[in-house]
Amino acid sequence: MVVLKMKTISLKVNGITKEITVEDNELLLNVLREKLGITSVKAACWRGECGLCTVLLDGIPVKSCMTLAVETDGKEVITAEGLYSDERAKKLMESFVKHGAMQCGFCTPAFVVTSHYVLTKNPEVDGEELKKELNGVICRCGTYYQIYEAVKDAEKYYKKETKS
């Protein structure tokens, strides 16, 4: 029988630091969804294939279904609703809304989080590079074209930031 060890981790989620007791095999996905009630983090495969559970961990996109909670001790997680307070990300979201870059919306938070990361890294991202960066998140409704347009249209907000 596997003996699970409990560990208390300190995790900053969307600006608020929490002390959370987790089992050592517990996934970040479960901690976020079930312990913290952050349901913007979706799951559709539970094994790293669909990208819907993507969150920013210290600014880098990770699949929370492939990340152990104990690995995130002392780190910072940002999810889609956490990005609302970022002015550039809010403009990015606005661009998603304007371009109709969503249908059922189940994958949308993962696309918002990932494209925010891509634009932060390089606001002048090449079109083919952008597709490659977003290739890890699946949208079954097939809104790729609209998402592409939305992200391209939001580049300008991220460029400003770089200049100032």
């Binding site: 969804r33 079930e34 009630g37 349901t39 913007s40 983090v41 979706k42 799951a43 999810t79 889609a80 609703e81 990005l83 609302y84 979201m93 998603f96 809304v97 304007k98 109709g100 969503m102 249908q103 919306g105 189940f106 949308t108 938070p109 918002v112």
Partner: peptide
């Protein structure tokens, strides 16, 4: 006219509740 879906802002922030999110 081009009108975005009524629940768009809940979708982009991930705060629209699906059955999956019901606990």
């Amino acid at each position: 006219k081009e009108v975005p879906q009524a629940d768009s802002w809940l979708k982009v922030t991930g705060t629209l509740k699906y059955a999956f999110d019901t606990f």
